[in-house]
Design a protein around this nucleic acid. Structure first.
Lengths: 338, 338
DNA sequence: ATGTGAATTGCAAGCGCTTACATCTTTTAC
DNA sequence: GTAAAAGATGTAAGCGCTTGCAATTCACAT
């Protein structure tokens, strides 16, 4: 015998409190428009019935969901964790909820998730980086969905964004590495296709390399997905070279920590035998041994500002802007002079 | 001049295709009930208008969202990543979407998130562990929301669940540690209040300790939230003791990796000076140095089974079951005999 | 008392979709 | 050729909420 559970609705509350549904709705959304007496009467009914508003109905009637969606390339590691955390916190302060999904670095999947989130009624979107099909931007524009891009900054593209210049940032680090005397550099990059951040970082190293008068052909590069294991494998491969590199620069801290881990397996001492650098300065960077020299990205600040701009756009309080944040080099034990 | 964008609806599609909305709806949901001719006509209209169904409207009309919600204690580290990944993959195969939120280990917040997800129309819920206010279970039952608990297993509680016996599992490891000759054990546990998994693991160590005839008072325990930093701090404190422990058993791999990291700062060699153990066998466990001896949890299997049971419950194809999975001890370099 | 504007409340029309039921077509069997 | 069954489509009633507008009530000055 199965009694189908009755879930209380606005109507039930209205009846219980002896008012109209409109009044109950106001009690829930615009208290100031309601007399204190009715308010308490209604709230009592809400309590005693255990009423929870139906989100879907609300979103449909109000034509806004107070929900914003974020699609990040991966949740497998902590690359986006801190920034997203700050993003969410700020959103909550402003009365918005966050829905997150992951695209696994696949543009197709990202496009699908975007549709999914829009279909769910997201009032706005946070996307990572610039590079995606123009059709996606069209879709978003046609639907009038405010969107902010993060983790990158390309002011001339005309999109709202909050990020940093991946290329210039990595160049900063590469310049430093070369100044420290390194002349045999090898690179473990993320997959650059479809990933402007990875491409920018790689380009930054190449910029520096060429600016110092070296030959691009003499700069070994392996591209591999951002996973510890891959960093390890790539490192092993790079260390096979006849002329072993004196430093391995990695596209992010995850790859770098894989590299360090593999170095130990190979009985190589980091940094004595070979230096290693990362990018992002995620928590891991401090905790691997030796601690990683890396590029510090102001994740929390980025998340916070992204949330503010997005809400600004949604509530039409502000215009599209592109905020470029400063990064800094964090020198730790994994990199030494030569 | 702002042209409010017109978002195509079912009506628009129906008009464009010259059929009723009912037919369009059928084309989208039950193709087999529609003639091939109309189907293609409708699909064309869908394409050309760039129509995407409105999720909220659909959920409201159909009284089901094909969405299931999961609330995990934290996204900050990878503890739940692999299991959740598998959970989601399996769900997708079955035609369901996943909404995840994090409770930050706060029961209050969890209760709120549960309401939030239910209000959003979740057809079912995945929760971690057993320990929560009875009112929460009541709420779920009253609303008829199928729920599966994971990461723990307490068959006599009468809840659907997929997990393992945290207490027995940790006891297995503790037995091993003691058999290997350790007599001075110290424990870094997660916060046990409100966390049956953490409590179970600690109890497992205590069980073993007492079963071997030792005094509970002689077993130093520090409880601290599951974060690397905290593991490090706790380790430092434990190593201050006059009688230094020969092994530090940690409530999970995150705490353990913090401990190892701190050991290095203190110029202590793991495992020569002190052994360290973890729990969970997350990816990190292989990559810290020395690699962690830990309890391997079949995360992916757990996630997969949880998804299957939950969908089974939702579609009334199966009954509540509690599945208990086997764990195993993974011996790595961080633990040696004495 | 009485009128006035402001503060409250109720009415009812949707929001975009699904689905039971009714209606109309086509197929199939005899 | 006809009747019955099967298949395809349409009609319309909601799902639970918000909100513009109209109706009512109230406080206060006159």
């Amino acid at each position: 015998m199965h009694v189908s559970p009755h879930i209380p609705t606005l109507d039930d509350v209205a009846n219980a409190a002896g008012v109209s549904t409109a009044t109950v709705s106001r009690c829930l959304n615009e208290k100031q428009k309601v007399s204190p007496k009715t308010l308490s009467k209604v709230m009592e009914a809400v309590e005693s019935l255990g009423y929870t508003p139906n989100f879907n109905a609300r979103a449909m009637a109000a034509k806004q969901s107070h929900t914003i969606g974020a699609i990040i390339p991966t949740m497998e590691n902590a690359i986006f964790a801190r920034g997203l955390q700050a993003f969410q916190e700020t959103l909550l302060e402003q009365g918005y909820n966050l829905l997150v999904s992951s695209s696994a670095y696949q543009p197709k999947l990202e496009a699908q998730q975007i549709r999914e989130l829009v279909a769910r009624g997201a009032d706005g979107l946070l996307l990572i980086g610039y590079e995606r099909d123009e059709a996606v931007y069209d879709y978003l524009a046609r639907r009038g969905i405010p969107t902010v891009l993060a983790w990158a900054s390309m002011p001339d593209k005309g999109h709202a964004s909050v990020g940093f210049d991946n290329r210039a940032s990595m160049r900063l680090l590469a310049d430093r590495v070369i100044e420290m005397g390194h002349r045999r550099i090898a690179v473990i990059s993320g997959i650059t296709e479809g990933n402007d951040r990875a491409a920018g970082r790689l380009a930054g190293i190449q910029d520096s390399w060429q600016a110092h008068g070296f030959d691009l052909a003499a700069l070994p590069v392996i591209e591999t997905p951002y996973e510890t294991e891959n960093g390890a494998a790539a490192f092993a491969e790079l260390m096979q070279a006849r002329e072993k590199p004196t430093v391995v620069m990695c596209g992010n801290d995850v790859l770098a920590s894989g590299a360090i881990s593999k170095a130990r397996d190979l009985d190589l001492d980091v940094p004595r035998d070979v230096s290693v650098t990362g990018f992002d300065d995620i928590e891991l960077a401090k905790h691997v041994f030796p601690a990683l020299t890396t590029v510090h990205v102001p994740h929390r600040q980025m998340g916070r500002i992204a949330a503010q701009s997005l809400v600004g756009l949604i509530e039409k309080r502000s215009e599209k802007v592109t905020r470029q944040l400063d990064v800094s080099i964090v020198m730790r034990a994994s990199l030494i002079s030569i």
